[in-house]
Design a binder for these strands. Structure first.
Length: 605
DNA sequence: GCCAACGTTGGC
DNA sequence: GCCAACGTTGGC
């Protein structure tokens, strides 16, 4: 079945249909059918199509999977009102009830998409949020309209070229997975049976993907491409690379999936007949441009490949769930966070497609921000792969504060056995150490203005977000600078109102479920503090801003190990003015969160 | 480098 | 079949 867009006359002029086969995963081989309206909207299901066309359009005879009308000649019949192709109700601003049947021309790319809608709208229609701007496709040169305000991929391409580009990219991804089929490695038809991957004997359905293949069968072109990419990144970063990634031992591979998948568990139980070893040439080598020239053998290239790509499991989606934290156990969406608001069921446009922030795994979030801290065995940590400082998952290497790192962060992670490790001094570094007696300090690297936040941190399950944002939502902010304070103001941390160096700290409304949980645990003093803080409850730091509107890219947060379990964060327009320079080193009881470099004392060498 | 957008896959 | 949401890509 072709995976390109094909005309779907059953739905009317301009409608296209596409069937996509899943290429990997447990449902590999299954197909999904998508439709594209004349105006470019994508429909993924019959429900969406029904919603899109409106109640006046009866789809009971329409075979969504096949794209034809049942019991009728699909070529001779079109749905009664093909023009009732409106925006989905999920996008209420643009949804319109009574369109006029468009003609074929409206489906062409010469007709601006939004203009088409505007032409067919009634007088009561709301004006479009943005007017399309005419442009020429950078590929074919044809004129097409662009919604200048919409952030859209490949918007310099017309609709057709864009679809082709996406299809091409998809092919490239497929190529990446299966290989070129032409090189000598791709010509090998049988596994060697002796390489580390073969020794793992992973079930085929589990171990799909290029780097799950026998080492002798890994496409040389792809491996070379990876190597070139790694070298470019190496030069770009100007950093000495971590020791070469090697084929992961069986134990590590098994841990990555937490042993929850029976197939993986079975693979894990298989005895290792031979010790896994690295080729002698590679045992003590690091990736360095000089070491790679001029033409490394395939085996060498393979061992230079990113360790992440050696991961044999394509089903990495479950890595985001520990299954045991409060967030994972939560069953309902809050309906208020930005991701919930994006969901169709809450009236959103389904563009972000992310899990409710309150349901995003706390362990996962913590591992991303504090990869070395969370290696302890407690609190479900064993369900997730242990963090390793020298190598993090791809998505974790960038300490993103976007959909990933903005996720609620459990502040209850403690580091038994690690707290006594000596804190490394970053002599000459740009960040400023916290003063004595300070339990939590916001530091801005290079700014030299510490903002300590004393006292107990969040409750065990309290999510914490440190979000980068522009200062453009003033209505969400209280007046004046604010820092987080604990229910108990610590001595040595004087408060000061209106200090211009202090960051603004925004707190989200308390989650109702968390409210109930916290109410069972919190003391009366906490309530008093909440009252003082205007009823704020669960400590959710959502955003940290500088007063000048600059983003706190280099924000660091000092957290007290001993008091992470304490409940009752609140916020107040009080702060500590800080001291510049001459600050003593932080106590070993502190750990530091940084947007860029997450580390705790024990992670430093 | 961050993150919005969205293709894709898991699971009910 | 449908929805949730993971993971990647491209825009900025």
């Amino acid at each position: 079945m072709a995976e390109e867009w094909l005309d779907c006359p059953a739905l009317g002029p301009g409608w296209k249909r596409r069937e996509v086969f899943r290429k990997s995963g447990a449902t590999c081989g299954r197909s999904d059918t998508y439709y594209q309206s004349p105006t470019g909207d994508r429909i993924r299901s019959k429900v969406e199509l029904t919603r899109y066309l409106g109640p006046a359009c009866d789809l009971t005879l329409f075979d969504f999977k096949r794209g034809v009308l049942r019991y009728l000649n699909p070529k001779a019949q079109a749905l009664a009102a093909p023009g009732r192709k409106r925006k989905k109700p999920a996008r209420p601003v643009k949804a319109q009830p009574c369109p006029v049947v468009p003609d074929r021309a409206e489906a062409t790319k010469e007709t601006p998409r939004d203009e088409t809608k505007t032409m067919t709208h009634t007088d009561t229609d709301a004006a479009p949020a943005s007017l399309p701007a005419p442009g020429c496709c950078e590929n074919c040169g044809i004129r097409f309209s662009v919604d200048v305000t919409r952030r859209q991929r490949l918007k310099t391409l017309c609709k057709d070229c864009r679809a082709r580009r996406i299809a091409f990219n998809r092919e490239q991804r497929m190529f990446k997975r299966v290989g070129c089929g032409e090189c000598t490695a791709c010509q090998v038809t049988e596994d060697c049976g002796t390489c580390s991957t073969c020794l793992l004997q992973l079930p085929h359905e589990v171990a799909s993907g290029l780097f799950c293949k026998c080492e002798q069968r890994r496409c040389l072109r792809i491996v070379e491409k990876h190597l070139a990419h790694r070298l470019r990144r190496h030069h770009q970063r100007g950093q000495r690379r971590a020791p070469l990634a090697v084929a992961p031992p069986a134990g590590k591979l098994a841990r990555r999936k937490g042993g929850r998948d029976p197939k993986i568990a079975a693979a894990r139980r298989r005895p290792q007949t031979q010790p896994l070893s690295l080729p002698p040439l590679l045992q003590a080598i690091e990736l360095h441009p000089r070491a790679l020239a001029p033409s490394p053998p395939a085996e060498f290239i393979y061992y230079c490949v990113d360790e992440d790509e050696l991961q044999p499991y394509t089903n990495r989606r479950q890595n985001r769930k520990c299954g045991s934290c409060t967030a994972c156990l939560r069953r309902t969406d809050c309906g208020r966070c930005d991701f919930c608001c994006d969901k169709p069921k809450f009236g959103g446009s389904n563009q972000k497609r992310q899990k409710c922030r309150w349901r995003q795994c706390l362990q996962f979030a913590m591992k991303r921000l504090l990869p070395s801290v969370c290696a302890g065995p407690e609190d479900g940590a064993e369900l997730l792969p242990p963090c390793r400082r020298h190598r993090k998952p791809v998505s974790a290497r960038r300490p993103r504060l976007g959909p990933t790192l903005k996720s609620p962060l459990a502040m209850s992670i403690s580091c038994p056995g690690q707290a006594q490790a000596p804190m490394k001094q970053e002599a000459g570094s740009s960040f400023v150490l916290p003063p004595p007696g300070t339990d939590l300090v916001f530091l801005r690297e290079g700014a030299g203005s510490p903002v300590p936040v004393p006292g107990p941190a969040s409750s065990t399950e309290a999510p914490l977000q440190v979000k980068q944002e522009k200062v453009d939502a003033q209505d969400d902010w209280t007046s004046g600078p604010a820092v987080l304070i604990s229910p108990v103001l610590r001595p040595g941390c004087p408060s000061k109102t209106g200090d211009p160096i202090l960051p603004r700290v925004k707190q989200e409304p308390r989650d109702p479920e968390e409210d109930r949980a916290v109410s069972r645990n919190d003391s009366a003093s906490d309530s008093a503090v909440e009252e003082e803080a205007g009823g704020a409850g669960t400590p959710v730091i959502t955003e940290i801003f500088s007063l000048g509107g600059s983003r706190f890219r280099d924000t660091a947060v000092w957290l007290p190990r001993q008091e992470m379990e304490a409940p009752g964060w609140s916020w107040s327009p009080r702060g500590w003015p800080g001291a510049r320079g001459g600050l003593p080193p932080p106590p070993a009881s502190m750990i530091r969160l940084s947007c860029r470099n997450s580390w705790c004392p024990s992670s430093q060498t």
